[in-house]
Design a protein around this nucleic acid. Structure first.
Lengths: 260, 260
DNA sequence: CGGCATCCTTCAAGATACTG
DNA sequence: CAGTATCTTGAAGGATGCCG
C-alpha cells in the first residue's frame, strides 16, 4: 500500500497532477470519456500499458474518486469502470492537451494504432468551427463496430456513443486507421469506398465536408498519394504565430436546427 | 543521452504527454508563464524538485522546443529560461488543470508554500466572471517584491507582470501566503492591514470586491478566526455537482471612481 | 477467458555533494 | 550562480501464476 508520490504544493496544477499526473493516468481517463469499459477493453485501447500498471492506476483513480468500479450481472459477472462526475470534469483538460498535442510531432517509429476512443476524442478536440462554416449535419458513424453519433450545427460539434434516429449520412469503416486517414491524412472518401473497406450512405457531400473540419497541423503520412502540399514545418518551433487565440468557443452563430 | 520514454501512441493527448507528461515538467512551465526566469529562481519556485531533475527537465523542454535558453550579458553572465511561442500555447492546458485542481483536496501535511507565480496563475485560472459582475478595475499588485498588474473589465481578467500607469488600487503584501489568505481563505483586507503586513491604497472597496472573484471549492484553513462554516466534504466524490459556493450579495462595486 | 496479483528487472526520480 | 556527478530509492515494464 505504498503511498502515492505527491507534490507537496498547494497550487491547483500540482493538486491536479497529484490525481492524474502519474504515467498513463490521463490516457486511462481518455479511454473512459465516451462511457464505461471493462478491464480488457481498457487494455485493448492501451496495449502498451502493462496490466499491473493498469490495475494500479485504476485503483488510484478510484481512490481519488475519479473512477467508479461497477459490477454488472450477476448473469454476466463482468466489472466495468466508468468516470465519476468528478472524472468527467477532466474533459477540458483532455481537450486542451489533445488540441495542443495535435500539433506535436508523431513519435518516431510509431507502430501503434490509434484506439477508437482516442480517434473520436481527437475529432472532438480538433474540430474547427471556422472550417465548418454553416454546415449542419447529423452523421451516424460505425468504427470497427463501435457506433457513434455526430451532430454538427451552429458551428458546434457533438460527438457521443449512440445512434441517431434520422441521420443525414452514414459512414462505416472497418478500423480506426481508415477513419484516421480520411480525416487527418486527406484520404478521399470515394477512394476508400472503392477499396470496399468503407461504406457511405445519405448526404455524402456534407459528409465529405464534415471530414474537412479537422485541421491537424502535423499530418499523418498520406496513405497512397502524396497528398496536397502542406506547408507545415516539422521544426521544433512553431513557424508562424497563426491565429493567436482561436481558443474560446464563443460562436456568434445562432444554432439553426434544420432538417424537419 | 538516454532517449526519453515515449508513448507510442499517435493520439494527441499522448503526444502532448510525451512533451510535458514527465514529472515536474508542467510545473516548470507554470513557473515560466509570467516571463523568463533564471535557474535559481526556478529552483526557488520549486524547492522540492531536486536540481538534477530540474536541469534534465529544462534540457528536455528545450530539446522539444518549448523552452529557450538565453544568455544575458556579458556584463551579467546570467542565463534565463523562457517559454517559446509553442510553450506559451500550453497556457490553456495549465488553465484547465488549475481550474480542475482548484477543487482537488490539498495534500495532507502540506508544509510547502505557494510560489508567487503559482498563486498568480491560480488567480488567472479561477477568476469567475459571474462573481465579478460589472466590476472594472486596474490594480497594481506587489507580492514579495514581484510586481503584477491586474485589469478587470467586461467580465474578463488580465494578469501579467508589469506596472499600471494609473492604477485604481494598490495592494502590497510581503509574501505569497498573505495574498493567498486574502483570496482563498477569506481573510479580511482590513485585518491584514491592521497587522501591518499589508498595504493598500486607492479604491479599497473595489479592491475588496476583486478579492472575492475567485471561488476556490477547497478552502484553505482560515488564518486566524475559524471563518464561515464551509461544508466541503473531504470525501473522494464531489458532493454537489456545481457551484456550491456562497455568493456574497455585495454588489456595491459598480462605482467608477478615478484616482489621480 | 476475463481480471487481476506477484515476482523480477530496468530505469527514472530524489537527495547530497561537488565543480567551473 | 549554474549547473554536474554519484548514489540510493522507488516506480514502470514484462512475464507468469492464480482464481472465479
Amino acid at each position: 500500500m505504498s503511498k502515492k508520490r505527491l507534490f507537496d504544493d498547494p497550487c491547483g496544477i500540482a493538486r491536479a497532477l497529484n490525481a492524474v499526473g502519474e504515467r498513463w493516468a490521463l490516457l486511462v481517463v481518455r479511454e473512459l470519456v465516451f462511457g464505461p469499459k471493462r478491464y480488457s477493453d481498457l487494455h485493448r485501447g492501451l496495449p502498451q500499458m502493462s496490466q499491473n500498471v493498469l490495475a494500479q492506476r485504476l485503483r488510484e483513480l478510484e481512490a481519488d474518486g475519479l473512477v467508479r468500479r461497477r459490477r454488472l450481472g450477476p448473469p454476466a459477472p463482468a466489472a466495468v469502470y466508468e468516470l465519476t462526475e468528478r472524472g468527467q470534469e477532466l474533459e477540458p483538460v483532455l481537450r486542451a492537451l489533445a488540441h495542443w498535442g495535435s500539433r506535436a510531432p508523431l513519435p518516431e517509429d510509431g507502430a501503434a494504432e490509434l484506439s477508437v476512443d482516442a480517434l473520436l476524442f481527437a475529432l472532438r478536440a480538433t474540430f474547427d468551427p471556422a472550417l465548418a462554416g454553416e454546415l449542419s449535419l447529423r452523421c451516424q458513424l460505425d468504427v470497427a463496430g463501435d457506433r457513434f453519433r455526430i451532430t454538427v450545427a451552429g458551428g458546434r460539434l457533438e460527438l457521443d456513443r449512440g445512434e441517431h434516429a434520422e441521420p443525414d449520412a452514414l459512414l462505416t469503416v472497418p478500423e480506426a486507421a481508415t477513419l484516421r486517414d480520411l480525416v487527418f491524412a486527406g484520404a478521399a472518401l470515394h477512394d476508400a469506398v472503392e477499396r470496399a473497406d468503407t461504406e457511405v450512405a445519405g448526404d455524402t457531400a456534407r459528409l465529405a465536408a464534415l471530414l474537412r473540419c479537422f485541421p491537424a497541423a502535423v499530418r499523418y503520412p498520406a496513405p497512397q498519394d502524396p497528398g496536397p502540399p502542406d506547408p507545415v514545418s516539422p521544426g521544433p518551433v512553431s513557424p508562424s504565430p497563426e491565429s493567436p487565440n482561436a481558443e474560446h468557443p464563443d460562436p456568434a452563430v445562432s444554432a439553426r436546427s434544420r432538417r424537419g
